[in-house]
Structure formats: structure tokens, C-alpha cells
């Protein structure tokens, strides 16, 4: 999952990753996408740019002793 806040400055970025991904998958340049989302500082920009979303790969498993279907 994308972190809620930027590690360096503390600005909220947790609500921006999905939009960024939509833009980039739609063929937009990542630089333009970050500008459009409104991230100015390079601390916040690297949070989004360098993030790798892996939770969907783990979603097919479940934690031992918790609910959910197999």
C-alpha cells in the first residue's frame, strides 16, 4: 500500500497514487502526471514515483488464524 504521508515533509500522498496510476496507464508522462496531481516537492514526488504496489499479489493468501475465504 502507498504510505499515507510523505516520509520527509508529511504532506498527504495516500489519496494521490490511484489518480497517478490512472494517468500513467492512460499514456501520460509521469512528470506531467505528478504536476497534474499537484505534487511540487521532490520528496513527495519520489514517494509516488518509486512506489511498487504489491498488495494485490499477496491478496490471494490469507494470514494464519484470520477470517476470509480460501
Amino acid at each position: 500500500m502507498i504510505p499515507v504521508r510523505c516520509f520527509t515533509c508529511g504532506a498527504v500522498i495516500g489519496d494521490k497514487y490511484r489518480k497517478f496510476r490512472e494517468y500513467v496507464e492512460g499514456g501520460m508522462d509521469p512528470k506531467e502526471a505528478l504536476d497534474k496531481i499537484g505534487l511540487e516537492r521532490y520528496c513527495c514526488r519520489r514517494m509516488i514515483l518509486s512506489h511498487v504496489e504489491i498488495i494485490d499479489k499477496f491478496l490471494i493468501y490469507r494470514r494464519l488464524g484470520t477470517g476470509g475465504r480460501d
Binding site: M1, D15, T66, G68
Partner: peptide
């Protein structure tokens, strides 16, 4: 919450 779009976690079917 200041923003309603902040992602907290992802849940698989049946999880809560």
C-alpha cells in the same frame, strides 16, 4: 478525514 480518498488497506473477498 480531510481527504476521503486516502487508501488504508486492501481486502480480499470475505475479509473485513
Amino acid at each position: 478525514p480531510v481527504s476521503g480518498d486516502i487508501e488504508i488497506v486492501r481486502l480480499a473477498p470475505g475479509q473485513g
